[in-house]
Design a protein around this nucleic acid. Structure first.
Lengths: 193, 193
DNA sequence: TAATTTTCTTAATCTAGGTTAAGTAGTTTA
DNA sequence: TAAACTACTTAACCTAGATTAAGAAAATTA
């Protein structure tokens, strides 16, 4: 996958001149991650936000009992970072690693802020991304408050059919907020009925 | 309360000229809400976002069983709307009403977009608000996945000490995702131990 | 290929939190 | 002020989902 994926994504929201594209491009860094390789760790300051070109990343916390809770999956064409740490430049609370071999493009917070100054339409681009992301977290909060585990699982299957294919089941369980054992039970019941 | 509250809030994030302030001001609308008066309803398109000058609003959904689930409280100095509907201009899924007599300032989506064109620093202002809001929804998702009801209640008390004072207990229960009966149980246990 | 690790399944048992119900206290409204 | 809601409490009972444990299947690694 090439960096074109990112420029196509951007062009859905804002228009850039060739000069602006080049300037933005000059601030980007490319990185490959092996399977399970960590991109961001707890207590670390997230210096950058990552755009996924290929593979898949995930963000998660580890609670006091050592259990992982998955916040987000980032397949190609998605941005991911520890937003709290990225915007505050304080030590973060989440881990981000690669579920499979992945290629990502990095933009540092300093460079992002610099770009906001030089190319104001980027402020719009990230404002729109943040709005959309806000809405999807909001939905997640509502679903947690009002749906059962079975309903959350079906909703996940409907919304992310491609992720269902490639993710280990225990990670889906962690995302929807149940134990792997219970998800297994849910799935076996569905088959019979 | 006067509209100054809003301009002080804005000045924490961006600098405006007098002309810009006046232009922005000219797009705002003032509204008073009685206790329980509805500002936005399900299936309605949220034409505007509201800044609270006095009183307190809340946003919530009503699920298939008729239960309310509170998404957000908006005391003075906060913005509130159905973000999904506001950005997409499609029919929304939530209700927003006044918990007590309230004064709010409204900005329509059309005017907001117009202001983004004319005064790009407003794009920054709302980008920053959206980033912060995203982080707090993200925390809410994490808390829902990793904390017990007791922990979520204590966290709420710590984070929103002023809201604890003025909100009916059943609304706090609805926000943290438990029944009023169970919250009552939690509170009585805390007293004894 | 075998050995090891990780994932998934099944089943018994347990518990956090829900449900139902009934009583009390506080607040609106007539 | 009384009547009618609405909010809060308590307690018995119930259930969705967790925990524990053990085996089977799949994927890594040597």
């Amino acid at each position: 996958m090439t960096i074109d994926l990112l420029f196509v994504n951007i062009s859905k929201h804002i228009l850039l001149t060739e000069v602006e594209k080049k300037y933005f491009h000059s601030k980007l860094h490319f990185r490959k991650l092996k399977k399970k390789e960590v991109y961001i760790q707890e207590n670390q300051i997230s210096g950058s936000v990552a755009f996924v070109l290929s593979g898949c990343l995930r963000s998660y916390t580890i609670d006091d009992n050592g259990f992982e809770h998955i916040l987000q999956f980032a397949p190609p064409d998605w941005w991911i970072t520890d937003m709290f740490s990225f915007i505050s430049q304080k030590p973060g609370t989440i881990y981000i690693d690669a579920i499979e071999v992945s290629e990502i493009i990095l933009l540092s917070r300093a460079d992002q802020l610099d770009i906001f100054e030089k190319i104001p339409s980027f402020e719009r681009y990230f404002r729109i991304l943040t709005e959309n992301s806000l809405v999807s977290y909001r939905k997640r909060v509502m679903d947690g408050l009002s749906l059962t585990a079975v309903e959350r699982y079906h909703d996940f299957c409907k919304r992310y059919p491609t992720l269902i294919e490639c993710l280990p089941q225990k990670q889906i369980a962690s995302y929807i907020g149940v134990t792997p054992e219970f998800l297994s039970k849910i799935r076996s019941k569905v088959k019979i009925v």
